[in-house]
Design a protein around this nucleic acid. Sequence first.
DNA 1: TTGAAAGCGGTACCAA
DNA 2: TTGGTACCGCTTTCAA
Lengths: 342, 342
Amino acid sequence: MREVHLTSFVSAKMVAERAGVSRSAVSRTFTDGASVSEETRRKVLEAADALGYHVNHLARQLRERSNIVCLIVSDVTTPIRAGMLDILTRKLQAVGKITVVLNTEGDEESVGRAMKLTLHYRADATVVLSGTPSSSLVKTALANGQEVILINRDDRLSGSENVAVDNAMAAREALFLLRRAGCERIALVTSSARTPSLVARERQFVDAGLRDGVAVSVVEAGPTAYRSGFDVARRLFARSNPPDGVFCVTDLLALGFMDAARHEFGLRIPQDLCVVGFDNIEQAGWESYQLTTFEQPLERMAGHVVDLLTRSEPVEGGNDGDAAVFEPVPVWRKSVRPLPGI
Amino acid sequence: MREVHLTSFVSAKMVAERAGVSRSAVSRTFTDGASVSEETRRKVLEAADALGYHVNHLARQLRERSNIVCLIVSDVTTPIRAGMLDILTRKLQAVGKITVVLNTEGDEESVGRAMKLTLHYRADATVVLSGTPSSSLVKTALANGQEVILINRDDRLSGSENVAVDNAMAAREALFLLRRAGCERIALVTSSARTPSLVARERQFVDAGLRDGVAVSVVEAGPTAYRSGFDVARRLFARSNPPDGVFCVTDLLALGFMDAARHEFGLRIPQDLCVVGFDNIEQAGWESYQLTTFEQPLERMAGHVVDLLTRSEPVEGGNDGDAAVFEPVPVWRKSVRPLPGI
DNA sequence: TTGAAAGCGGTACCAA
DNA sequence: TTGGTACCGCTTTCAA
């Protein structure tokens, strides 16, 4: 490789000229399974290397798919989101797709803008991690031959594919753990972000309580964040009749809750208070927390997304079947008493 | 909007046909400052809406820039990286650019593959958050008219632009804090990932010690992670003559270190042990840690990146000037004794 | 195996 | 203001 200083991308034409062959020859050299003689191929590769040529995949897509996947997401700094993003980008890259991250505020308008961008950039697929796109935009996307995959948004939008985690199962199990530990005043801490999957966790937990004949008090924190969990615990334990067993719909809330309980009120966990979370973010395993929680099987969920995007024959006009739902796996640590009365 | 079911993107031609105008008219309708009559514009917009048309920005790039920026990054789940990614995607979107996230392992080969992708996808710019691209690839990128921005990689690659944080300043200040607190056995905990900026922090801290006449013992943990900090503390405090003041080159290391010191050895922080971190990730402010640290001014750094990418006249053939360096801001919390002997 | 030509979805220029 | 035309970089078909 020698020359530099062009200030603009080198094209196949330039390579062709330098190699003394036709543009077609250059193209063929870079498409597998095309017929080029060893001789031409060598000349082309040499010229390409000298010029620093790379095939323009965007021009290529004028005929085929773009291999672009858009990820619509908010709260990227949140460990669970960052985790999902990490795994998805990896797996997508592994199958030759590139990921455009569209960072939104999660509100309808912002998500709408993002959806339009996915259309502008001819993404093969849109994967929605947060927020809910309007159904008309989903329809447009599908009509344009784009796949739409919704993750952990339990609202079924016609035509989209859905992958989700089994909230009901986690909620039931969480209640079980708390009751087995002998907790008598059980509370559910939820967030002000009423996303479908948070709401599902909440409702299922309360319902499970109803079935068991235990009253669950529901308390709404602020946004899904450490600070919200912290603040809500300060409120709760400053009042009479505070809970002795809590299910937080998110690890982040749980971690904040634990910190306030311990450092502001001197509560011991799990002796005085049992806490269960959800997500199994890395911090839940840190020595200061050792939170018992439920892990979202991100790896498998992302794998499923990739499967959907790579199966040979995408379902015409989208999917109307059920969501693929994955079982969260319980992660037993130390924030819940193992046996009653201990 | 009515019809659906096309399974492939709608083009300007289709809109033109439906609206009964020429392709040019459609194009003009969607480029600002073009001259179209109200009447045609209306017809076009109507047809476009009915068909669900969106301009193909990828085709547009055949003539102009792509407005794609590639972010090369590893360890996305790490709070500091997630934070950078969050801010950058936001700010880039705000100026009409979209972000392709290229998730790498940080090693040369993986970064090299990513660099090639940025060329394939005709990115206007490549921003490297982790790993170091080979200088020949950087040269190729620049030769193709792409801007290359390196963040926190102190190795100067000719032609690239650099933005970094002032490691020397933080290292000096960290030592000052520890010494003022009366620490006598000072250690530096670094990671096995010998990235330029980690190495700089380490070297500068040791040098500052030398100047002050205090010996600093350097201990290398595993990769930059909580667990590494934890393990290294277990090793250190199981031996004679353990440190009483530690600068960890990363908050994540510091947090793990604190947890092991407290929970495995019963050490009190800051009474028995002072700890200083770097990054100011969210978790550093959590009640269980209250880590004194240095904040990377991500907001300003990202702002600078965007400035570089949006200035009207990019420097021909790249930049060879100095890096833009930003001062980390000290965040005083509770992991260091405020005054000697307390 | 090769080169010429057409077409992918746009934009820009030109003459009407 | 409008439509026709050329061209952006690439792949594919077609004839040689």
